[in-house]
């Protein structure tokens, strides 16, 4: 983990209530797709944890949804604004387990971390497939960007206005995959956990105090003990999860 001052380079709407922000600064603490950053906002005490969509030597890209006063304020930050950010938080995805045909499953703002993950897996010569779920066509983002990287992409929308009508699990039929990576709202993760046929790993979100394992604010129970979503997660293995239904 590192603390640094980052400059907003871009902060633009991407879909209904969803923004993309690119920050310039030290990215050396970011080591794996699926990690997150924790941003201090003016007038807010707690930082806002947001997953990393992509990063390079000098920039970090995040995609965030307007969920309350904090993210509303964030969406109004102009280019040139500087922010105090903690980077390199959380364990991230383990690309070593992917096999030859990994499946990436993103629901809503669970989609962004799949971008850097797809990039790494494609660079390693894997055949990457992605299933993205949204409420309706106006909410869809990054399906084309993932396709441009070279992934095979299926989109599901709850109202059927784009792609398969239904949830991500309705779009899994017929796919042949070696391992899966999922990120999205908890009901989606539960459905994926029940439906997907291979081993996999799932990325969770929770309200956090610190974001680095000090406050025990985001702990969940697993088969391998209590896990702090911020530090022992946000990515947990399929076999650790305690869901029994």
């Amino acid at each position: 983990m590192k603390q640094g001052i980052y400059t907003v380079e871009e902060n633009t709407p991407l879909a209904e209530g969803v923004f993309r922000m690119r920050l310039r600064g030290d990215t050396s603490a970011v080591t794996r797709p699926g990690q997150f950053i924790n941003i201090r906002l003016d007038g807010k005490f707690l930082r806002r944890p947001i997953s990393v969509c992509d990063w390079d030597d000098g920039t970090i890209t995040i995609i965030y949804k307007l969920l309350g006063d904090g993210t509303e304020r964030m969406s109004r930050y102009p280019a040139g604004k500087t922010l105090d950010v903690l980077t390199g938080l959380g364990n991230g995805f383990d690309v070593g387990r992917a096999g030859e045909r990994p499946l990436l499953i993103g629901g809503g703002v669970g989609t962004p971390p799949m971008y850097a993950l797809a990039k790494q897996l494609l660079a390693a010569g894997k055949r990457v497939q992605a299933v993205l779920g949204f409420n309706s066509a106006a909410d869809v983002f990054y399906a084309d960007e993932l396709r441009d990287l070279g992934a095979a992409v299926r989109v599901a929308t709850a109202d059927g206005s784009r792609g398969v009508k239904g949830f991500v699990t309705d779009a899994l039929a017929g796919l042949d995959y070696s391992y899966y990576y999922a990120c999205g709202p908890e009901p989606m993760l539960r459905a994926v956990w029940k439906t997907a046929v291979t081993d996999g790993e799932l990325s969770f979100e929770e309200r956090m105090g610190c974001g680095f394992g000090a406050c025990m604010g985001c702990t969940c129970k697993t088969l391998t003990g209590f896990k702090r979503i911020c530090r022992d997660g946000p990515v947990l293995r399929k076999g650790e999860l305690l869901w029994d239904d």
Binding site: L46, E206, M208, M216, G217
Partner: peptide
């Protein structure tokens, strides 16, 4: 959880 909330 949730165990954490923001305040002024």
């Amino acid at each position: 959880t949730p165990r954490i909330a923001e305040a002024e």
